[in-house]
Nucleic acid binder design. Structure first.
Lengths: 226, 226
DNA sequence: CATTTAAAAAATGTCGACAATTGTTGCGAA
DNA sequence: TTCGCAACAATTGTCGACATTTTTTAAATG
């Protein structure tokens, strides 16, 4: 009976935001398994809170698309089968390619510098680790910076708030945590080049290709595993 | 002091879902004005419910992107200034053009028939009303059918659950309720043609152009009104 | 008169208890 | 045995009260 590590956290003053983060991480890592029911009574007991803030946390998780809640029946963790994964990546392709197009116009030079720093770190890491892979956190840092550079809060929310938690969950639980292929680094460089050139169309197609390739890699691997 | 009409509704058994719909409609129509605070105490009194289900309704509205909630300070209705509107339409362009592409492949012939029925109704209406406009509800019916035809629940949710309420809110409050231009009907026909031909690329560009044109119309009109 | 500060008021966050609904168990009838 | 049904258990939904934080008010200070 592993308890969900609440750690020290607490930068989010309120209890419901605390347990939202705790449960979010437990779902992403799979500590709470896909498809399992989130029993209010049990969770409230385990986390040592009342059911009030717990219900609010559940609604928050619903906003991250991590759970599905139906009236009078409770909440369940989403199930990431192959179809859902591919749907997520198709949606990501549409949103993030548009974000790249906007970022080519709207990114500040400071943010472009940040992209370079992330890429350089990735390059150094791969060099030090026999070109093995890019660490997940570094990959997220790259895409986070790109998405924020679009200066479009609606797209940013659609991606970072409602889609990326699902992507992290999938990659963590299905051993796609670290993006393979040294090609990813090259693609990252091409993306930064397009943005640096302030070329929206090139930025859009490079990001689109980057995501489509990831999508197809996933599809191949999941079909092979069947 | 106009009270929010709770009507008979009640098909959603639970109180929180009831008042979610009530408040959603009040926000979309502007009965609750943009930027105004949603006071839990006052609303609970007005709607004659306790604060529990009201807080859940607020979280639901947050999931529709209709309000913004910050801890210890409460919830406010979003403000739709020009920048936000254009951000919404840029996001819609990315999502709905992808949805059209998918729909060209995945739509059933029955759903295509449904698109024809909607278009025929629009055609008849315009003919009967001196080519004035397409009624808002009929326009939403067209796009709803298109989006559902993509058979991608993630895109569908991103559009219908998280974006379209904002679009309805804007169009209702800024007199864009009825899509002007007889050109819209032609564009609808082109979209259906592309889907009928099972041509994803053509479907994508026709929908993209349809939305970009609407976006640019809005931008021109809002700038002229400044 | 403007600014600061402390008390008061109001609002949001949390809790425990009760209500209503759903799910389960076990008995009895076909 | 299988099916239906009633009693029971467990879960979710709702409520009112209390705790904590924020906002307002108003006095006091410079």
């Amino acid at each position: 009976m592993s308890m969900y590590s609440t750690t020290l956290a607490s930068h989010g003053s309120t209890i419901s935001s605390e347990i939202t983060e705790t449960l979010r991480d437990a779902i992403i890592t799979g500590e709470i398994t896909q498809g399992s029911k989130l029993s209010e009574t049990k969770l409230a007991r385990d986390l040592d809170v009342s059911r009030g803030p717990l219900r609010e946390a559940i609604r928050n998780l619903e906003g991250m698309n991590l759970i599905e809640h139906v009236a009078q029946q409770g909440a369940r963790v989403v199930t990431l089968n192959m179809q859902t994964i591919l749907e997520i990546y198709d949606t990501r392709e549409a949103l993030e390619s548009k974000a790249a197009s906007l970022a080519a116009t709207n990114m500040t030079s400071g943010e472009i510098d940040e992209l370079h720093r992330v890429i350089d770190a990735q390059s150094k890491f791969m060099h030090d680790n026999s070109n093995a892979f890019i660490p997940a956190e570094s990959d997220y840092a790259f895409h986070n910076t790109l998405i924020r550079g679009a200066k479009n809060n609606v797209i940013e929310s659609a991606l970072l708030r409602r889609l990326y938690h699902l992507i992290k969950m999938f990659r963590y639980q299905h051993d796609f945590a670290n993006t393979s292929t040294s090609n990813s680094l090259l693609e990252h460089r091409q993306i930064v080049y397009a943005i640096e050139q302030r070329d929206p169309e090139l930025a859009e197609v490079t990001v689109r290709r980057h995501i489509v390739r990831a999508r197809n890699r996933i599809e191949r691997r999941l079909k092979a595993a069947q």
